[in-house]
Simulated scan of single mutants.
Amino acid sequence: LFRQFIFSIFPYPKRLRWVALKLWAYQKTGLQWLVRATGLLELLPARLRAMESMAPSIRLSDAFSSMPEVVPAVTPKRRRVAMLLGCVQRVFFSNVNRATARVLAAEGCEVVIPQGQGCCGALMFHTGLENEAIAMARQFIDAFETELSTVDTLVINAAGCGSTLKEYGYLLRNDPDYATRAKALADKCRDISEVLADLEPQATRHPLPLRIAYHDACHLQHAQQISAEPRKLLASIPELEVCEIQESELCCGSAGIYNLLEPESARELGTRKAQHIATTGANVLVSSNPGCLLQMKASLEQEGRTVQTMHLVELLDASIQNTSLDNSATN
């Protein structure tokens, strides 16, 4: 039943917004404080406790926001790219999507955002529900097909989604109607770090005198073999000190929905990762996947650590826009 609940909510942004509204009320009325302070939370099943601990702070203006169909390039146009909005990303991390569009535009990319895009099927694909993933993939391909031939790249800012989209050619290899179309889409998929690392910077990077720790998301480092590109982008920010985390190859415990289905073992992994982060002395943790950010924020809080969590592109955006992190952070 719990798995069915997850798969009936998470891949659907409209349903996630309904959840966001309930979460907002839970947080803003003081009910969350009461449940935690009185110990009522401990009476809930482990899976529900895990879900509650990882719930992000809700701002309704973000949860119900939208993106324009086209974001024009700010500097001389070099590329035309399409952009993935994601499911969890567009509802709970819409600021990451806005930062992604701003950074791409600042680097000379015209950004096209198909409004009919839905879930890419990543949650289903990662948990072995191949038929459901294929159905989602077909709908996703249909939503992007009109724009696909007009763009250079499909830009992705969620590592879990990216690892799935790049496998579309394999996933739909036996579908006579979609096999060729799926491969064409997969061939244009790139993580935001790949796209930006491949472009000579046009936008000025302003100093960010911070000590940050960078976490490699498994779906980026292992599934897509991307690790040098994010570090290249971080190195472009003046006065930024980047700390490597011990056992960087180790999962943080998020792993799609693993932290919700197997909360105890996921918590062990999260605690181990949080302790390694603490040894760096960093006051900001940066990663490229929403699930990792939620998992590590919860793990750090459970360890009593005050560490700000941010998506890589938010940090770049803050440097380019010359704004404070208070206006850019995911949490």
Rank of each mutant, 00 (worst) to 15 (best):
V70Y: 04
P207H: 07
S227N: 01
A20M: 06
R78L: 10
L300P: 04
Q275R: 15
E132K: 00
V111S: 02
D187N: 13
K232C: 00
L220T: 04
P290T: 09
R15A: 03
G162Y: 00
R138I: 13
Q221K: 14
I6A: 08
L104R: 05
H126P: 11
Q224E: 09
N259A: 12
K297M: 02
A122N: 05
P263T: 05
A122K: 00
A158Y: 01
F93V: 03
M54V: 12
R17T: 11
A159G: 09
L325N: 05
Q139D: 12
A186G: 01
L21G: 15
S57A: 13
L185I: 04
A25M: 15
P72Q: 03
E52F: 09
T150C: 07
L16H: 04
K183M: 10
R80Y: 01
V74C: 10
V112F: 07
L185V: 09
F5C: 14
P13C: 06
P238C: 08
F10Q: 00
K166C: 06
E130S: 04
A20G: 05
L210R: 02
A55W: 07
G169L: 07
V103T: 07
A105Q: 01
E247D: 14
A266C: 03
I212W: 00
R36G: 10
A318Q: 04
M136H: 12
S163D: 10
Y258L: 05
M136P: 03
R47L: 03
A274C: 12
N259F: 08
D62Y: 11
A158G: 11
L16P: 06
V307C: 07
M136Y: 11
V307M: 06
V151L: 00
R78F: 04
V81C: 04
S324K: 11
N283Y: 05
L285D: 03
R3I: 01
G86Y: 07
A55P: 03
S193L: 01
I320F: 03
T100L: 12
K273T: 00
T127D: 13
D191H: 10
A329N: 11
A133Y: 06
A63T: 12
S94P: 08
D62R: 07
S94E: 10
D216N: 14
A213M: 07
E314D: 14
E239M: 14
A37M: 12
T204I: 15
A223Q: 07
L148G: 02
Y214T: 08
E145C: 11
E239V: 09
T29W: 04
S53F: 00
C189V: 15
P207L: 12
V284K: 00
S8E: 13
I257V: 15
K166T: 11
I320S: 01
P45W: 07
D62E: 15
L260R: 01
L171A: 12
A101S: 12
